[in-house]
Nucleic acid binder design. Sequence first.
DNA 1: ACGAATTATTTGAAACCTAAAATATCTAGG
DNA 2: CCTAGATATTTTAGGTTTCAAATAATTCGT
Lengths: 176, 176
Amino acid sequence: MDCQASGNMVQGDMSEAADLAEAPADLEAVARGGKAELRLWLRLLSTTNIISGQIRRRLREKFDITLPAFDLMAQLEREPEGLRLGELSKRMMVTNGNLTGLVERLVQEGLVLRETDAQDRRAFIVRLSRAGRAKFAAYAKENERLVLALFEDLSPDTIQTLMDSLAMLKASASRR
Amino acid sequence: MDCQASGNMVQGDMSEAADLAEAPADLEAVARGGKAELRLWLRLLSTTNIISGQIRRRLREKFDITLPAFDLMAQLEREPEGLRLGELSKRMMVTNGNLTGLVERLVQEGLVLRETDAQDRRAFIVRLSRAGRAKFAAYAKENERLVLALFEDLSPDTIQTLMDSLAMLKASASRR
DNA sequence: ACGAATTATTTGAAACCTAAAATATCTAGG
DNA sequence: CCTAGATATTTTAGGTTTCAAATAATTCGT
């Protein structure tokens, strides 16, 4: 019963970690000697967290925007007509109540519009404002630049392999 | 400037999503037509989130334990002598201040011990209590069962491929 | 139409997270 | 010794997250 650890970490500060080469010191180390699936899961998790941490940090430094806000705008960007909150929460894979505050903040900043649905008075439609659309373009450009940089060492072949294998894994995990 | 979205989602409620087959409705859909790296990143992210969401949910249902708490215990389990908070935060890849409350809760529950370091009065050493060690064994067993189930459809070959490709990606992303 | 389920969203409690500032302690240089 | 800087942790402020319960509006069976 060695080799465990599961989930939910996000890139930390790491600002003054001069001795990282000496001590790997990340979650993955916990999996030494474990079952292959466990080790793979830990590697998947730490890889994802390193990447999302870098993106989060740099988007914040450059634009002072949070990742959830960026994700929300990314969803709205491709739906000019707007989306209902429920649909948005499904797409973002977060719970419904979660969006209330996030949308509220973005409305305050003038980046998204929130209007009642004429057909269904329970529902709200949120969509990008003109300003939101303009800002998002800048965010997205930087995001793309970052992702390309982080993935730079991967050959097209490796990328394709990862796409395929992850599709399998995703299907496997979704089935249960 | 299509195809964007970046990061930080976690498996949502999804409890009453009967129509998921009809509408894929997840972040990945945003990437249609984008650069391969962007699409891969979204797939990586959604796959990780689906898996960690399932593990989180089931650990909570079965043991009422959170993922961060489980991770913390997993780190301590392999360090019988205990760890300093700073070392723990490095390994868990979370910021330092983050652990204060988490450790506090686990101490309250009697699962971990927190004692001052005799050599360095700034530091604290945390380690698993006897009860914590026992409980963690049960958590870990269930976690392993879950991961194996979620990864069930993956061939040993695919697992190895993923391990290798993710190692490359992790190295690439860590370098920047 | 009426009332019962259903659906859309909000609210509230508790936990988690970062980043930056504050506190306390240790270590070295002079 | 004593002060400057480094280190370990906590605190504070601002968000994010889940889950469960509450509110409000729609739909459907009868």
